[in-house]
Design a protein around this nucleic acid. Structure first.
Length: 419
RNA sequence: GGGGGAAUGUCCCGAGUGGCAAAGGGGGCGGACUGUAAAUCCGCUGGCGUUAGCCUUCGUAGGUUCGAGUCCUACUUCCCCCA
């Protein structure tokens, strides 16, 4: 699919040279459509958590590229679909979220897009819509008659999202089974409202996207296209998106800019070039130069990557602060006030705090037991000295320059400060 | 509708004779080596407790037993065979 069909449109060329394309439904037709004028394309995001995470970055960047190439991005928030739950890649049904939770998540997720896209009423300005607007107003029988007729069970059973679940002998409810239809109807609705012709998404969404494409072509006899991105894994084969300490959230209140910077800084050597193309706006020739660096020098390229990616999300200032904190902590062994911190009441500290409890509360370990094991393994550090006794009591005497520096491993650092 | 089998550590796969906090992988985390990389080697991987120990876990709910992942009953879900 990525065998260099030499696209003529700026958008598809951009997508191809930067490595976003895994599959396209009708490459030549889509290329022609992009050439003919601004097109409207969308990506859907479900509101299952109060923040998106780095795994979503490739989709967000794709909308950004779309706008850069002179087209109109539509961000679809899945207020309606989240109520059903996408069975793709899930072994079992998630607990259903309440309306209030979903709305809260949407409000919180929204903010991130403004950093990557220009919203407004102009022809290439981005817009954000919520599929609850239409999905919630359908009557059951009407929905079945209008859309259900276009889907065969035979076909639906053949899609990976369904097949995987069945293969693993896990139950799949009728509710989840309908997710596919809802996503297809979304595409149709956006086509009617905004003239949207393209849906993009991760490769796991291929089935859902193709269904929408076919629905539009069948019902409205209009052109419609789908484009998916490759599944992102690191060069050594791990699923991308996790880092020390779990999911890398995009919202600053859930993952600090420092952590976000660290995530990119820790990229594997072999991924540096690919990630720069996907996740930054750096020009291709500069990327080529940077990724050619060898040995320890590639670390400079990783910093460039981290700075660029963090600037996009959190702003340049935050990126520089993160870099400064990292340089101080890792290269000079000094403290920086920009390191993540945890506040403890002065009274508690004066009374004495058990290390294991503090480490757990500060987020360095999931539980006190884990903190103890960490200490026994030599991974817990207090003011840079390994501490194997997690039952030790810390007090004001342990303050150095007003803080206690706690570290789990070499990369997870928290400054405990009394307040 | 009838018959047979299956569900295990809330990340996944997967052993398990009535004495089990439950083998072994993968993944994850930590240590060593490096360059905050990869590969490799080592350790850890239910919660609370300093130790003793206590609590919670083998699909769900009951039961038998001093004692249940293991036996019985019902239910849920999945697979296979017959109709």
């Amino acid at each position: 699919m990525t065998s260099e069909p030499a696209f003529k449109s700026e958008f598809l060329r951009l997508m191809q040279t930067r490595g976003y394309i895994h599959q396209i439904t009708h490459p030549a037709e889509l290329d022609a459509a992009c050439l003919a004028g601004p097109i409207v394309a969308y990506i859907g995001f479900d509101a299952t958590a109060s923040s998106l995470h780095v795994g979503h970055m490739i989709q967000i960047m794709m909308l950004r590229r779309l706008q850069q190439a002179g087209h109109k991005p539509v961000v679809l928030m899945g207020g309606g679909t989240t109520k059903v739950g996408d069975p793709t890649d899930k072994d079992s049904q998630r607990p259903l979220l309440t309306d209030a939770q979903i709305q809260g998540n949407i409000d919180s997720i929204k903010t991130v897009f403004q950093r990557f896209l220009t919203f407004g009423d102009g022809p290439t300005d981005a817009v954000m819509v919520n599929n609850a607007e239409w999905l919630e107003s359908f009557g059951y029988v009407q929905f079945l008659r209008d859309y259900g007729v276009h889907f065969t069970i035979n076909r639906m059973l053949s899609f990976d999202s369904v097949k995987n679940r069945l293969d693993r002998e896990q139950p799949m409810t009728f509710l989840e089974f309908n997710y596919m239809l809802m996503q297809s109807v979304d595409f149709l609705e956006l086509e009617r409202r905004y003239g949207c012709v393209l849906q993009m998404g991760g490769s796991d969404q291929w089935g859902n996207i193709v269904n929408g494409v076919e629905l539009i072509r069948r019902v409205d006899q209009k052109p419609a296209f789908g484009l998916t991105t490759p599944l992102l894994s690191t060069a050594s084969g791990q699923k991308m998106g996790k880092s020390v300490g779990g999911a890398v959230w995009l919202n600053a209140d859930m993952r600090s800019p420092y952590d976000y910077w660290q995530f990119w800084r820790n990229t594997e050597d072999a991924d540096v070039g690919r990630f720069m193309r996907l996740f930054t706006d750096l020009p291709l020739d500069e990327i080529a130069r940077l990724e050619a660096l060898e040995g320890a020098q590639i670390n400079e390229a990783k910093k460039v990557l981290a700075n660029a990616a963090t600037s996009l999300l959190h702003g340049e200032e935050a990126a520089q602060a993160a870099e400064a904190a990292a340089v101080a902590a890792f290269e000079q062994g000094q403290l920086s006030t920009d390191l993540p911190s945890f506040e403890i009441s002065r009274a508690d500290l004066e009374a004495g705090v058990v290390l294991a409890a503090l480490a757990a509360d500060a987020g360095l370990a999931a539980s006190r037991g884990e903190a103890r094991r960490l200490a026994q393994g030599g991974g817990l550090r207090v003011n840079d000295a390994a501490e194997t006794d997690a039952n030790r009591t810390l007090g004001v005497a342990d303050l150095v320059d007003g803080v206690i520096k706690l570290a789990a491993g070499k990369k997870k650092i928290v400054l405990v400060r009394p307040a």
